Lab assay of single mutants.
Amino acid sequence: SSQSQGISSSSTSTMPNSSQSSHSSSGTLSSLETVSTQELYSIPEDQEPEDQEPEEPTPAPWARLWALQDGFANLECVNDNYWFGRDKSCEYCFDEPLLKRTDKYRTYSKKHFRIFREVGPKNSYIAYIEDHSGNGTFVNTELVGKGKRRPLNNNSEIALSLSRNKVFVFFDLTVDDQSVYPKALRDEYIMSKTLGSGACGEVKLAFERKTCKKVAIKIISKRKFAIGSAREADPALNVETEIEILKKLNHPCIIKIKNFFDAEDYYIVLELMEGGELFDKVVGNKRLKEATCKLYFYQMLLAVQYLHENGIIHRDLKPENVLLSSQEEDCLIKITDFGHSKILGETSLMRTLCGTPTYLAPEVLVSVGTAGYNRAVDCWSLGVILFICLSGYPPFSEHRTQVSLKDQITSGKYNFIPEVWAEVSEKALDLVKKLLVVDPKARFTTEEALRHPWLQDEDMKRKFQDLLSEENESTALPQVLAQPSTSRKRPREGEAEGAETTKRPAVCAAVL
């Protein structure tokens, strides 16, 4: 046999249950609850290399294929790409003598399909299967379609040439079993990697079954959420508030809700932002270029202005709740996480202390139980975000031990490091100062900020419009641009040419 590394010779191994799959997660993409704000000051410096380099560890398999027929071997997927077919160049070659004697062998292509993985959001991997055969590759009886790919989820059954000719079961060793999710959700989405997690739940990458488009699904544990919100009269209202707010909003710089499922837990389906959180971008770069800050901040102002015009105060604006559309420097941003939002009543007064301390406005800290506050709290938070983006460190921090965090904020005395700000323009610093004003009545509004000289930049605004146009074009394009080929190089076993392929839609398939 010419099988590559990772293939075992026996096809009769006992199949494990899916609970053996491991679970991976990374930083929070968007969480309903406010958790302790991640610290920006503690960015690790590059460490000196050791005298002796450690040995390379043996790579762990990321997936496993269990053979369902004699003549096929099990495969431990270690590499990122595997070709399957009769050709000797394939990493998994159909060359077992037992297999060659079967009637089905002649229906398999020289290069029938490939399984591979690509880097997705949060640097996690996504597994795909890609059909290159004349007679078809099927996943859970659905045709992939020649020249098309679809994501592979845990426990997928792979069939060759005929939908009933099941050859492998695919085990993704990095994700959960699909069966743990409600059927209504599974009918519409293929669940994938964990993108982030918080005290009350997690955010998962998923794929729409009909279109193969990526989405983010925010899962909120009702049990954990009820415990964490025990002081509230009705904890469920917080989730329902977020859903109702998101459904009503329609702005290019605000995250869109696509679906909602109320089962044992809450499942909020949101558009996916491939670039992750602004927080991670700031930490990764230490600070952002001023031109990049301007492009992002302009969009934040437009989003918050839209919220305020619609009578909504976000109340928890922070870099973790600003998501980026891509890994590119120039990209769209979207505001997310409306769990603490407040729809303005007639009095415009709110007395609930919520939000993240580092970003809270002075009037929030001094008015607990005594007075109210209004939309100006969001403008203060925007000032803190702009400060961080321009400088790479927070204006107020618990680690300045000589003054408490509350006193720093209520006095408006931010930590100004001259040598850092020497590289920032006077106009940018002036806008920061106009937003970090203790008196909410004297603080800049979103309208005033948008009129500030720093943002009178036609090149930046043109760039934003171009990015918007690109997004609109990409969302308007159909996901499947061509029909699967019906040509046949070899006959199917026991049926006429093209008899099955043309009847089945290529579900969740995307043209390369």
Rank of each mutant, 00 (worst) to 15 (best):
I243N: 08
I245Y: 03
K247E: 12
L249K: 15
P252F: 11
P252T: 12
C253D: 03
I257C: 06
K258S: 07
K258W: 05
K258F: 08
E264D: 11
E264W: 03
E264C: 06
Y266A: 12
Y267E: 11
Y267S: 05
L270Y: 01
E271R: 12
M273E: 14
G276V: 03
E277N: 06
L278T: 02
F279R: 03
D280A: 14
V282F: 09
V283M: 06
V283L: 13
N285D: 12
C293F: 11
C293N: 03
L295Q: 09
F297T: 12
Y298T: 13
L302F: 13
A303W: 00
Y306G: 05
H308C: 11
G311C: 11
H314E: 00
H314G: 00
R315S: 01
R315A: 14
L317I: 10
L317Y: 01
E320T: 05
N321W: 04
L323A: 02
L324A: 09
D330I: 11
T336K: 03
D337Q: 01
F338L: 02
H340G: 01
S341F: 04
K342F: 03
I343L: 09
I343G: 01
E346G: 14
E346R: 10
L349C: 10
M350S: 10
R351V: 06
L353P: 08
P357Q: 12
T358W: 15
T358Y: 14
L360K: 07
L360F: 08
P362I: 00
V364Y: 05
L365W: 14
S367I: 14
V368S: 09
T370P: 11
Y373I: 02
N374G: 13
N374T: 07
V377E: 01
D378L: 00
W380Q: 02
L382A: 04
G383P: 03
H399Y: 08
R400M: 08
S411L: 04
N415S: 05
F416S: 04
V424D: 02
S425P: 10
K427Q: 08
K427D: 05
A428R: 13
L429S: 13
L431F: 08
K433S: 00
V437C: 12
K441Y: 11
T445F: 05
T446P: 08
E448M: 07
A449N: 02
P453R: 14
M460I: 09
E470D: 13
E471P: 05
N472W: 08
A476G: 04
P478E: 02
L481K: 14
P484H: 08
T486K: 05
R488N: 10
E493P: 11
E497A: 14
A499T: 03
E500W: 04
K503D: 07
C508T: 10
A509M: 11
A509Y: 15
A510M: 09
A510T: 08
L512N: 14
